[in-house]
Design a protein around this nucleic acid. Sequence first.
DNA 1: CTCCAATATGTTATGTTATTACGTACGTTG
DNA 2: CAACGTACGTAATAACATAACATATTGGAG
Lengths: 135, 135
Amino acid sequence: MTPSTEAPKLTKNQTLVYRALKSAEEPLSAYSILDQLRDDGFRAPLQVYRALDKLIEFGLIHRLESINSFVACRHPDCGTHEMVAFAICESCNRVIEITDDAMASNLASLARANGFSVSRSTIELRGLCDTCRVH
Amino acid sequence: MTPSTEAPKLTKNQTLVYRALKSAEEPLSAYSILDQLRDDGFRAPLQVYRALDKLIEFGLIHRLESINSFVACRHPDCGTHEMVAFAICESCNRVIEITDDAMASNLASLARANGFSVSRSTIELRGLCDTCRVH
DNA sequence: CTCCAATATGTTATGTTATTACGTACGTTG
DNA sequence: CAACGTACGTAATAACATAACATATTGGAG
Ligand SMILES: [Zn+2]
Ligand SMILES: [Zn+2]
Ligand SMILES: [Zn+2]
Ligand SMILES: [Zn+2]
């Protein structure tokens, strides 16, 4: 569940999927990854989904629920934070990862005050990045 | 975009879909709504999705991105808040709606500090409600 | 090294969620 | 009534995700 701290050795398929995500400017859907990896022998969605599952488990990538897509983690110490927020630009599709301990504890205690114990969070903000906003 | 303040008159299909969601204890998927409404003449997904879109527009229901489901709004003044957080119990599936102006402004300024202007948010917390936690 | 078990992979089929495209019905307005 | 906008019906298809089963690879234990 919690991403392991040590870098795991990736298998062939995991490496290919991870490379695709790292080199992408934007989040990719599983099926667009599949398309990209046809030449590498990928034939079926499951080859992608299985690799994605493992990469998420390793903490190397994130899933963005609101757009059914996946993005390579660009945050240096993502694994050390409970909650991560994602800011997804609706113009350029780029994603900014935001961690903030105050935010995390505020949100958790707000939930507690409402009779709820948080174990996992999905925080996805839509809007415009500064680059796109000035254009 | 912003839900209208006045109560709109619902059409037949919208009424049926809204009633299904209001009477449900848990969030429903579009297809489970469709199944429930077969006897009322529903035949195709689009009948559900069109009604859902309108109900969301009216601010009467919410979409939960992380579970591809929909829930009737139970929050008295939901429309007056920028951000709503949803706490989804992984045991009983019930949803608690949480609004908090401090949370909203904190999150928005945190995003601003990271070079991002928020226009819309998805905040979904998974965990256990107090009722389920003691069991 | 050999055998075993765990993990990873390949493949087909299927399940689930959501939209496109097109045509019809109906209420409102002038 | 005619013209318009909104809602509705239906079929087809797109997009996203998993089940089930077979085979291959890998990494210890003996
Ligand atoms: Zn990260
Ligand atoms: Zn942008
Ligand atoms: Zn609400
Ligand atoms: Zn519960």
